[in-house]
Structure formats: C-alpha cells, structure tokens
C-alpha cells in the first residue's frame, strides 16, 4: 500500500537573527507525511519542533525568522516560493493548525461561532447564514453539547477542553488535507487529554486528513502516530514507524527519551532516568553530532563530524556513528525496549 506524500520537507534550515547573533533553530530537517497518516514529531523542548511546523505554514515571525534553505513540498508545490496571497489561500484550507494553549489561542472578544465562520467565509465563499450552519455542524462534530447556544458564546465561557475542541472545529472546518497540531494536549488535564486525542483520531479517519502531531509525550505518540520523527537540536536524529521507534530504537537520544518517560510496563517504583545535561546552544551549534556531549556512547568521531543518515530499514533512518560498520556494537538498554505500551 504505497500512499502518496501530502507533504515533503527537504533539508529545511530556519534561523532567527537576534541581537546576540543567528539562532540556527532548524538545521537541515527532512521528513515526509503520507496521505491519511499521522506523523509525530518528538524531542525535548527547544529542539525546533514548533519552528519546523510554523515554517510549513509560513507563520514564523519574519523578521527575525528566515527560511534560509530547503523545500517544503505540499502536493508537489514548494510552499517556500509561494507569494503571500497564494499562501493565504493554503492556510486554513489545505493546511490547518492547532496550538498548544487553548486558553490563549482564541480571540477573547469574538464569539466562538464567528471565529469558526471566518475561515468558511474566506475559503468556501459561504454567506453568513450558510457559514453559521456549517459552524453549528462543526461544533456538533467536535462534541460540544448544545451548539445552538454555545455558538454565540465567548471563549471565556468555555472550559479548557471545550476551547481545544473549538480550535479543532476551526481547524477542520474547511476539511484541510493536513492538520498540524503543536502539543495540542500539553496544557490540558490528563482525562481531557485522552478525549481530545480520541477526537482527533476519530476526525482524521472521518475526514481523511493527514496529521503532524508535535508532542514530547511518548504516551501520546504510542496512541496516535503511524510514524515518528525524533528531533534534537534542530536536526532529525531518527525516524521510523511507531513499532520501530518503540521496539527497535537505534539512536542513544531516542533511548534517553524512552528512559525518561513513564511507561506502563514498568513497576511503580522503577526510577525514571532523565537525560543528563542540556542541549547545545543553537547560536553556536557543534560541528559534530549535537548529542555527543550528553551521549554515554560518544566516540571521538562523534564530536568532530556529523554522522550520515543511514537506512536501518526502508522506513527507519538513523543519524548516528554507532550505525557505522566499524563502530563497536552497543546493546540497547533493556529497560527501554517496548517503550510505552499501547
């Protein structure tokens, strides 16, 4: 079953020109998203997940941000070369986005209904009455009770979970081909988190939308993703199917991420082991592997040269010197394998 790519990101470089110098937030990221697929991007805070996703939408503030290099192919068209007017037509219609904090991502002075209707009026050229009907339908679809009265309410009258549902309604109103969700559940209570994830999975099936799900919660990944992109310091260090990443992770950073996550197959009193050290400063990124300074298995070569990305299987790529035939084989720490159980 070979599905077509909705999105291909190729060698993306994004920098921010700040007072202190050039922050190289994204340094050669490549991945693709197939039709109907959910791709999770994971990694510690600050590794460039949000910058990558906002670059796809061309929403990084310019200045100080700039897409320095690379292609973002959406159904074959390079978004980095699109004029702003054409890009406006893509946003919300072909690609939509949900943000982390539902408390601040809705306009407090506009009714929720109007905020849903805006995209419909712009992209589907609907009249006010039709847009309202469609907005009601969307509210019902995302499981907001009594939509007839809710549609006229303001965001502050909604709870956090409800607001994220409303955000999903806004994002999916024009049936986009790709939905980017940047930590959509991080700001929510655990029980609400599960509800929102189920809703997203549900709607993805119904509407045949591809999803890029950004998170640092591997439990969320296990539950929703088909494939995983592991990012570190502005680079992709490993990608693979969920099974590959959870059962056969190959990069020491991925092992570290797994080891620092609560998992169901561990007994309650097993200690979690956070990755020691901090990510490198992106003002002056190291010339070798950025993880070398924190890596137990680092060799001399790691500090001097960035490893090539090698195929471990058709779907599994790793950028690590341990993959080199001449490297001494290292066993995956046993407590990591199996990862977060589904």
């Amino acid at each position: 079953m070979d599905r077509k790519n909705v999105l291909e990101v190729k060698d993306l470089h994004v920098s921010f020109h700040t007072y202190n110098g050039e922050v190289q937030a994204v340094r050669g990221v490549s991945f693709e998203v197939k039709n109907g697929e959910t791709v999770a991007i994971v990694g510690e805070s600050g590794c460039g997940k949000s910058v990558t996703s906002q670059s796809i939408m061309r929403l990084i503030p310019q200045p100080p941000g700039v897409i320095k290099h690379g292609e973002i192919l959406f159904e074959g068209n390079d978004l980095t070369k699109l004029p702003e007017k054409k890009m406006e037509e893509m946003r919300g219609k072909e690609i939509a986005m949900i943000f982390q904090d539902p408390m601040t991502s809705l306009n407090p002075t506009m009714t929720v209904g109007k905020q849903i209707m805006e995209g419909l009026i712009k992209h589907q050229k609907l009249g006010k009455a039709e847009a309202r009907q469609k907005a009601l339908e969307m509210l019902r679809l995302v499981g907001i009770p009594s939509p007839d009265s809710r549609i006229n309410q303001y965001p502050h009258q909604f709870s956090g979970g409800m607001r994220q549902r409303a955000m999903i309604a806004i994002a999916l109103s024009c049936a986009p081909k790709l939905l980017i969700a940047d930590e959509p559940t991080t700001a929510l209570d655990v029980t609400i988190q599960a509800q929102i994830l189920h809703l997203m999975n549900d709607l993805k099936e119904k509407m045949d939308t591809s999803i890029i799900l950004i998170t640092h919660d591997l439990g969320v990944v296990a539950e929703t993703a088909d494939r995983v992109v592991v990012m570190y310091a502005g680079k992709v260090v490993e990608t693979g199917t969920v099974e590959e990443i959870f059962y056969k992770p190959r990069h020491p950073y991925t092992w570290g991420l797994m080891g620092s996550m609560p998992r169901l197959n561990l007994s309650r009193d097993t200690e979690l082991s956070p990755i020691l050290g901090t990510p490198p400063n992106l003002l002056t990124p190291p010339k070798g592997c950025p993880f070398a300074s924190r890596c137990e298995h680092a060799m001399q070569v790691c500090k001097e040269h960035m490893p090539e990305t090698t195929n471990s299987s058709d779907s599994h790529q790793v950028a690590c010197w341990l993959e080199h035939p001449m490297a001494k084989p290292v066993d995956i720490p046993h407590d990591v394998v199996g990862g977060v159980s589904k």
């Binding site: 946003r91 919300g92 991502s105 995209g119 806004i170």
Partner: peptide, 23 residues
C-alpha cells in the same frame, strides 16, 4: 496566540489586525 490562529485560518495580515487585534 490568537493572532497566529487568525493567520493560520488564512486571513490576510490586514484583516487579522482589523478584526482581531484592534478591539
């Protein structure tokens, strides 16, 4: 954030300012 949401909907910078920022 809601300005980002407004732009992510496809509103032009101008519309986003008039409809979302000003009030």
């Amino acid at each position: 954030d809601y300005m980002k949401t407004a732009k992510a909907k496809g509103l032009s910078a101008r519309t986003a300012i008039i409809k979302h920022a000003l009030r």
